[in-house]
Design a binder for these strands. Structure first.
Lengths: 107, 107
DNA sequence: TATTTGTTCTATTATCTAGAATATATCTGG
DNA sequence: CCAGATATATTCTAGATAATAGAACAAATA
């Protein structure tokens, strides 16, 4: 299992934290809140799709709800490989930053 | 200032931790030690060069030493922008992982 | 049919990765 | 002392992969 990219990390965490509400639109909003700036639609769905292809996420289409129009949602969920990838990231981060002061002092 | 990629993060940290010994070869070795696997030459020098172009690192050629042959080394150092980028990464990581248990439990 | 919600598609740009090519220094034999 | 031989290190280049933007499309209700 390869190391995930930054945006993949952020998206995996968004899916984890949104739990049963994890579909495209709120995932994007969550990512935007995390980053503090706007993110394009493609910048979410392209890596989302790749994470599914790689087996770190699973996805399924939900039945339409009676809220107010709109296409049906595609929900996402972490697979056990996805969880493993996040754990691997925790480990790597710990190794990388172990000896770095927090916060980082002046040059 | 954009958010740095994973390999850029690892290289910035390697330069930080190597201090005055930060040139290509030991940077590569340090990265390999962090990751626990081999990394190609290009996988180091290409992002290193980009980090210089972006102003996160500075670099200068050293005089040849009298150790045993070899081309002169090119040393790298974090600029204040590079330090800022690392601080921004600490912040982002804190925001991203704040509510995630460590270690991450089962699915 | 208009409106709303949401996803898919596609093209461009940027980044990653591998390793061959190149550069430049000291060492060694005659 | 000079011509390879050897060692150390970086630069270059090309193909693969990933990021990003937003237009196009789909499907539901009003």
């Amino acid at each position: 299992m390869d190391i995930v990219t930054r945006i993949e990390e952020i998206i995996l965490l968004a899916v984890l934290q949104l739990g049963s509400r994890a579909y495209g639109v709120p995932i994007r909003e969550h990512v935007q809140a995390m980053l503090g700036h706007r993110v394009s639609i493609g910048a979410i769905y392209v890596p989302l799709d790749r994470l599914v292809r790689k087996g770190l996420l699973t996805s399924f289409e939900a039945e339409p709800t009676a809220e107010r129009g709109g296409r049906r949602k595609r929900y996402y969920k972490l697979s056990s490989e996805g969880l493993d990838a996040l754990r691997a990231l925790q480990d790597l981060h710990e190794r990388l930053w172990r000896d770095v002061p927090q916060p980082l002092g002046a040059g």
